[in-house]
Computed example of a mutant assay.
Amino acid sequence: MNETSKRSEPPQDDLDAYVGLAARAAEERARERGWSTVRSLPPGAIITMEYLSGRINLAVEDGEVVRCWKG
């Protein structure tokens, strides 16, 4: 596997483990685990739906992650 294909694969991570974490802790954890883009959003935010490999999305309510998904 070359360096480019390594970057195109999202990190192998348990997304459910982010739920319940404080937003800042979840963002730091995601970056440490290799996510290239970490996006924190309020629940129900209107966002573009393009899939970006290497991006993790965190729905944050009252400073806590309530949902997490990749892309």
Rank of each mutant, 00 (worst) to 15 (best):
R39F: 14
M1R: 05
S40N: 06
E27N: 04
E3D: 14
K6E: 14
K70D: 09
E32V: 06
T48F: 00
E9S: 11
Q12E: 14
M49P: 00
L41H: 01
K70S: 11
G34H: 05
P11A: 07
T4C: 10
I46N: 02
C68S: 11
A25K: 03
K6Y: 11
S40E: 15
A26F: 08
N2E: 12
V38W: 05
R67N: 14
N57L: 12
A30N: 08
V38I: 09
N57P: 03
A59P: 01
R7N: 12
E3N: 08
A25N: 04
E27M: 12
S5G: 05
A45S: 12
E9L: 08
I46W: 10
D16E: 06
R31H: 13
A17M: 02
L21K: 02
P42C: 06
N2Y: 03
E50Y: 03
K6S: 12
S53D: 09
R29M: 15
V19D: 00
W69D: 03
S8H: 06
E61S: 11
W69Q: 00
S36G: 09
R7K: 07
E32M: 09
R7Q: 10
K6Q: 13
G63W: 03
E28T: 12
E64S: 04
E64Q: 13
R31P: 01
S40Q: 10
P42Q: 08
R29Q: 13
K70G: 08
E64K: 06
A30Q: 06
E64M: 09
A26S: 07
G63L: 09
G34D: 12
A30I: 13
P10C: 01
G44Y: 02
T37W: 13
A22T: 04
R55F: 13
V19Y: 09
R31D: 09
V66I: 12
A23L: 02
E28D: 11
A25R: 00
R55Q: 12
R55W: 09
M49H: 02
P43H: 07
K70R: 04
M1V: 15
G54L: 13
A26E: 03
A59I: 02
V38N: 07
A26R: 00
